[in-house]
């Protein structure tokens, strides 16, 4: 599977990564190399093989419906790069 420059641009957009125009071509080359290598998985017949959903035999833990968390708006904001009156602040979003 070879990946072209436009694909890298599209994927970078999906991942919200600003990849400089000059990096698109080299990145396409690197990714193509990796995907060509990964192609070897196609040799394996996986028909009827279940996809792995959990690597250990363990039942999902359930929690009681108790309020045990919250009331910490100050602690929540101390690392915020944009914070005001306990709100996170971002450039205006237009819907």
């Amino acid at each position: 599977m070879s990946v072209d420059k436009d694909t890298v641009r599209r994927i970078a957009k999906l991942a919200r990564l600003a990849v400089p125009e000059s990096r698109l071509e080299p990145m396409a080359g690197e990714l193509s190399g990796i995907f060509q290598w990964v192609e070897m998985l196609c040799e394996v017949n996986v028909e009827g093989v279940p996809t792995m959903t959990s690597v250990v035999a363990q039942k999902l833990k359930w929690r009681k419906d108790d309020v045990t968390d919250g009331n910490q708006a100050d602690a929540l904001m101390i690392n915020a790069p944009g914070g005001e009156d306990h709100f996170f602040v971002v450039p205006k979003v237009v819907e």
Binding site: G82, E84, F87, F88, V89, V90, P91, K92, V93, V94, E95
Partner: peptide
């Protein structure tokens, strides 16, 4: 997201 509190910012709760 509150969009109408400020001309340039949105506030997230």
């Amino acid at each position: 997201s509150l969009h109408d509190q400020h001309p340039d910012h949105s506030f997230v709760d």
